[in-house]
Design a binder for these strands. Structure first.
Lengths: 232, 232
DNA sequence: ATGCCACAAATCCTATAGGAAAGCAGGTGC
DNA sequence: GCACCTGCTTTCCTATAGGATTTGTGGCAT
């Protein structure tokens, strides 16, 4: 429909070209995810422009887009800051929101699943199982990516642009918490089993079961994280 | 929580000052809601700058923020366009999304309702009842505003920043559909009764009932709109 | 020592200028 | 008549400059 597939005109010619602001956006997103930009840190427009060797104009545009994701916050005439670290209460709210949205996505995705979608989900779970789980970010990065991809794919398979948009507003925050929740990957075996259970329900074509397994997964994620980080 | 109430320092001094890009953002939002910018129309950066008598820079920033709301869409090197009209399928998806999110908001709002929140909700319903309902936009504008405010307040009272953000991604689309769904206000009496039923449940402190009434309301809205606009 | 004020540096914000790409019109060749 | 090419206009995109605001620092009075 809105798929801009009209023309992959010639080989080597990007279908949808990017402008400088897009690259800046991706660079900033990467730095936010990497932790190179730490929570609470100021994100100076001029500073980022110098660092990326561009003018402040595209940086300003990229930050304006990033603001709505909740990753950075803006105060007029004062500038942008990386969103502060999650409090225990923030985390509880985030999990509550996930419990409201993700089971619905799972249920709808189950009844509308395409073979391609199912394949992609299987690959995501497979990637979860084979991903390295070392202590440094570079090592468990692919694990986090596969985790996020799994949930994102389910939201996409629900085949509802508005639910997908709603989930995506959470997705970035979930990813951010995974990074700064601080506990690394300590629950991979259990998380993988839970993902597998969701995938099995989806494969089996049982929407209610899929929703139930998703609730189970998110609740257990919440339980483990709450146990890991009781301070605050 | 994110309420910027820290200081109404001195009389006449705006709490959080605005910059030009904020005004441009609000002006564009107003024009989108008014229908002055029709679906599918191009939104030229330079053109808007001329019309608002500012430079293109703040217009560019405002549009970058607007893009994420789904009201406008951007194609690199080609510019921004107002999002196209809702198809019947889009509408069905939007209602499905509302049914997934709003009842949860109502349930949570009910158990966390503050006296101030309840007062605000009562005012919104009262405004709905007293708002003029003429045929022109200027006349039924306040009706639409009260309707949107009612749902927005419930989302806010759920007291979950992430659910609120998720709802807000829908809110703009809902408002946009109300305008371009094209049927004006033909169901005010029924809609008011349904809103009142939700309010009663919230006042009574029965979360399940509140969720149920919200489901009922959204489903009936869907039914009426589907009946009004069977073409497409 | 503490509070206050002036000054300087950094930053945000807006305007302007110019290069690059896209759209459009008109003309030419087949 | 139709396709294609050329030149022009519009628009987007980026860089730069300068005014406005905030922040940090040092000195001064109490």
């Amino acid at each position: 429909m809105s798929d801009p597939s009209p023309a992959v005109a010639r080989a080597g010619f990007p279908v949808s070209r990017q402008v400088l602001a897009d690259h800046v956006y991706e660079a900033l997103l990467e730095w936010l995810m990497d932790g190179r930009l730490e929570p609470g840190a100021a994100v100076s427009i001029d500073g980022m422009a110098r660092e990326l060797d561009v003018s402040p104009t595209p940086v300003r545009e990229a930050l304006a887009r990033l603001e709505h994701t909740g990753m950075v916050r803006r105060v007029a005439l004062k500038g942008y800051r990386v969103a502060p670290v999650f409090t225990r209460e923030d985390f509880a709210e985030l999990m509550e929101a996930r419990l409201s949205i993700e089971p619905v996505n799972a249920k709808l995705a189950c009844s509308r699943m395409t073979p391609e979608g199912l394949d992609a989900l299987k690959r995501a779970v497979e990637d979860l199982k084979t991903a390295p789980r070392g202590g440094t970010f570079a090592e468990y990065r692919s694990y986090l990516e596969a985790d996020e991809r799994f949930h994102q794919l389910i939201a996409a398979q629900a085949n509802n642009q508005f639910l997908l948009a709603a989930y995506n507003t959470l997705g970035g925050q979930i990813q951010r918490f995974r990074l700064f929740g601080g506990v690394g990957i300590t629950d991979a075996e259990q998380a993988i089993a839970e993902h597998q259970a969701v995938l099995d329900a989806l494969t089996g074509g049982d929407p209610e079961k899929a929703a139930e397994m998703m609730v189970d997964h998110v609740e257990k994620v919440r339980g483990r994280a709450m146990a890991d980080a009781p301070e605050d």
